[in-house]
Design a protein around this nucleic acid. Structure first.
Lengths: 136, 136
DNA sequence: ATAGACCTTCCCATGGTGGTAAGGTCAACG
DNA sequence: CGTTGACCTTACCACCATGGGAAGGTCTAT
């Protein structure tokens, strides 16, 4: 299997497969005589693992840790769970952050006429000139 | 006012002030004879505007647009509102994305003993070997 | 034999931010 | 007046993950 086929079979672009190899996330692929990378079912399986972890928002470093644990048959599931739980916390912090932004923006947009007049509470707030918002 | 003072007065690091100047987000500051950048109240005000916009998650490009509208006394508030509403949608999409990840991870973590045994549904799922999750 | 679809490596760009190094300037203190 | 230390200047490098493209080699089908 060439890198292109491995890419479409795994969902990881050829570009990224080479990148993951270059940073040591995955082992260098075998090569043909003409220097083409060769992949088999096991490699694609591994690439899919990587793909899923990345899709779940794990960083490449976290993915490397998960990969190591995956391949370590004697690992404790607690280690994996710890990574996952940490990651959940990080994601939730980010969500809370974004929600704060949305809340503020929605408030501002709600107070903004959005018409042709230049009167704009959104800009006023950004400029730090908060004005009475008509009691809302 | 030197750049350091402007930085602490505005909450934008000196580094970022120079960067914003270099990409044209803000106008080049005046200079003293010895080539130091000089800032006044108006510049700090503007930097604070930028800071707030960035804190609300607007990209530098969006911030530039908002800045332009802010300084255009005859602008229509509808233009600003459009940027804000767009941005709200983008943020909400990102939140939904992250929430999907959290949901999946929580489910997996819930099904994972997190003990010393190597049995780990999290890794199984990442590997694509979904197994019965005890009916949960 | 030739075309076209693939592969290889190498470099560049993104977006914001931080670091750091080498050098200039300024204020205060002795 | 000289030194010290805190500031400023520019110019790079790094991050993280990904995409783009160029220049050149290889394989397959016609």
């Amino acid at each position: 299997m060439n890198i292109g086929e491995a890419a479409s079979a795994s969902g990881v672009s050829a570009k990224m497969i080479r990148y993951y190899e270059s940073i040591g996330l995955i082992r260098p692929a075998q090569r043909t005589g003409s220097n083409y990378r060769v992949y088999g079912g096991a490699e694609v399986h591994l690439l899919r693992f990587v793909k899923r972890a990345r899709t779940l928002g794990f960083s490449v470093d976290e993915t490397a840790a998960l990969l190591g644990l995956w391949q370590d048959k004697g690992r404790a599931s607690g280690e994996v769970k710890a990574i996952a739980v940490n990651h959940i916390a990080a994601l939730e912090a980010k969500i809370a952050d974004l929600e704060g932004m949305v809340r503020t923006l929605k408030h501002l947009a709600h107070c903004c006429g959005g018409d042709d007049r230049p009167d704009c509470p959104i800009l006023d707030e950004l400029a730090g000139e908060a004005r009475a918002t008509k009691g809302h």
